[in-house]
Simulated scan of single mutants.
Amino acid sequence: MIKVLLFAHLQEEAGQQEVSIDKGDLTVKEIKELMINDYHLSRLDGVMVAVNEQYALEDEVISSGDVVAFIPPVSGG
């Protein structure tokens, strides 16, 4: 099982702070597509992805037991 943490507007879109995915050995790109399709997230283009608290690239493989965080860009004023 992969634990996915959502932050900021992604929590609002998905309606929850975290989700569990009963799959393993998915790439970051595949998990993004899954989140868009299954949890109706609008887009994840500019979102940073961390796997086990380390930033990850699109082709990094996520295994069962890993924790993934989707971190949207922060704006300020």
Rank of each mutant, 00 (worst) to 15 (best):
D66K: 09
H9D: 12
Q54Y: 04
G24C: 01
L44D: 05
V19S: 00
V67F: 05
F7P: 11
E58S: 14
V4G: 06
K29N: 08
A69F: 05
Q17M: 06
L6E: 13
V61F: 03
Y39H: 08
D66H: 10
K3D: 14
G15Q: 03
I71W: 05
V61L: 08
G65A: 03
L57F: 13
G46N: 12
I71G: 08
P72V: 09
V47C: 07
I62E: 03
N52T: 02
I36V: 14
E60H: 14
N37A: 12
K32I: 04
M1W: 01
E12R: 07
K3Y: 14
M48Y: 09
K3T: 15
V51C: 07
Y39P: 00
V61P: 02
E58K: 12
L41E: 03
A8Q: 06
V51D: 00
M1I: 05
E13Y: 07
F70K: 10
E58N: 10
A14H: 09
K3N: 15
H40K: 14
S20V: 13
Y55H: 14
V28E: 03
H40S: 13
I2D: 12
V19C: 05
E60R: 13
D38M: 00
G24L: 00
E58P: 11
E13N: 09
G76S: 14
S42F: 05
H9E: 14
R43L: 00
Q16F: 03
E53V: 08
E18R: 09
I62M: 05
D66Y: 06
S20W: 12
D38S: 08
I71P: 08
G46H: 15
M1Q: 08
H40Y: 06
I62V: 15
E12M: 05
S20E: 15
R43F: 06
Q54G: 04
G24I: 00
Q16H: 01
E53Q: 14
E60D: 15
E58W: 03
G46I: 10
L44A: 07
D22K: 05
D38T: 00
N52F: 02
V28L: 06
N37W: 00
E13A: 10
F70A: 11
I36K: 13
A8Y: 02
S75I: 06
K29V: 01
V28S: 02
T27G: 01
Y55F: 15
V51H: 00
R43D: 07
L57V: 14
D59V: 03
P73T: 11
V4I: 15
G65I: 04
S20I: 10
D25M: 01
L34P: 02
A14S: 08
K23A: 06
E13Q: 15
G24F: 01
G15M: 07
L41V: 07
Q54K: 15
A8N: 07
S75N: 07
M35I: 12
Y55S: 09
V28D: 02
F70C: 10
L44W: 11
D45Y: 08
L26K: 07
D45F: 11
G65P: 05
K23Q: 13
Q16C: 15
V28N: 01
M48E: 04
E30N: 01
E30S: 04
L10A: 13
V61D: 01
S20H: 14
S63M: 01
V67G: 03
V47S: 01
Q17E: 10
Q16K: 15
